[in-house]
Amino acid sequence: MSAAVAPPITRVNPATVRAATDEPLGVKILLVTVSVLFLGLFLVVPLAAVFGEGLRKGLGAYWASVTDPAALAAIKLTLITAGIAVPLNLVFGVAAAWAIAKFNFRGKSVLITLIDLPFAVSPVISGLIYVLLFGMQGWLGPWLQSHGIQIIFAVPGIVLATIFVTFPFVARELIPLMQAQGTDEEYAALTLGASGWQTFWRVTLPNIKWGVLYGVILCNARAMGEFGAVSVVSGHIRGKTNTVPLHVEILYNEYNFVAAFAVASLLTLLALVTLVVKTIVEHRLQLELKESTQTPSGEA
């Protein structure tokens, strides 16, 4: 280096010197500002809109909309639907993760892809396939009708469509977690004389409890909020086959905006609670995963 190109000796001004892997301060401020504005516009404004519109005519109107008999019936149906879909998918998720994570068999990766499949199917099509199967013109429709069983435009159809769209949630959380944890602890339990069930309840389940909870939370949020699939199979019979999201749609289409947003705000609160619990559980889940990957995994 020649002295000619060297800058004159100056004293260090800490504001002008930065670490090699830092962006200039201006770029940083710009990036943070753009990100915050973008998220504010796309996430915070809609949130505010729901509550703002719902409370437009005051708390009285809000309360009346939420406690309207049709609204209460919708809430009841949504709770029933989630109450059936979530436990079923939980049992499935645990069983699938046990088989996939603890054993080796051919076709495992195909099975994992198939379990994820419902995520790739659009909500409307998820409803449509059940109409094609159980509807009046569907494969099983005539048989079902002759036996007096109604699935489409009735509660069973809503439950089935909800199970379909929430199918992968628990399984896809548990499979990687249990794969990372391996089989060493289960083998240890067996050598100590535990039975299969004891091993599962006392060794496996405590190791995956945060993963289970995480999957259940996401599954529940989607089950209570599903719109497209349920809309196709429900028939929109007020007080009978309306879930909360469908009730919101009906109120909105009737230009009863305050009521629509009031009921929608309940779902929004559910979403916010889900986010808070999810953030907390996520932290515990990461610890669970980290602990398990510190020890080498077994043969699974």
């Binding site: 280096m1 002295a3 060297a6 800058p7 260090v12 800490p14 670490a19």
Partner: peptide, 24 residues
């Protein structure tokens, strides 16, 4: 120059006796 020393008027880094303290 991957790290910056604490600010101190006496501190300096010289290559061939010319300062590179503020050079990235």
């Amino acid at each position: 120059g991957l790290e910056v020393a604490d600010p101190n008027p006496a501190s300096e880094i010289l290559f061939d006796d010319s300062s590179v303290t503020e050079r990235p």
